[in-house]
Amino acid sequence: MKQTNSIYHHNASALEEERQWIEKAKVNPSDFGVLYKKYYLQIFRFVLKRVGDENISAEIVSDIFVKALQNISKYEHKGFPFSAWLFQIARNEVNLSYRKEKYNKTVTVETPELNEVLEEVDETQHEENIQLLLGGLKELKPDELEILEMRYFEKRPFKEVSAILEITESTAKVRMHRVMQKLKDIITRK
């Protein structure tokens, strides 16, 4: 995978600055505004890709930041950017909203990303295989689809994927490998 999500790659000074804002926000909630503005679009796009509806997504994003603000006192820096913690909350909130049966789960994907998956499973990049792949996505379990989305449709590095899913990097890689194997099996069997 050539392209990666550059958002995750913070330098040391940026991380330190962020930590200072987090500490300020723990004392004064108004200072959370800096973090809110910094991550608003990232979180919104994360939710929108999984929900599909802009207005529903906006409500969920609002809830995410409310929960983040309410729990920021419990936040501890564990070597990951603050965004990973926010994405964990976002992931939980999105899954919670699915369970409330407000709407169906949505996957937002571009054709080049689908072609990239096909390339990864050594299949020819043409429309017929893309349709098989799209059908295959519906056969994946929620956690399998989730890791595929993050890795291939959102270009997140394994480090970030593992931080959001709260698993080790090696586990994330093993899971990803199994998902790709499953997709390959689905495509070749049809």
């Binding site: 608003y40 799209l134 519906k138």
Partner: peptide
Amino acid sequence: MKELNINRDVPQPSDDDL
């Protein structure tokens, strides 16, 4: 899993919209 909607190549709202 419930029905899965797949939005393929659907234009996404701009940053300003969001």
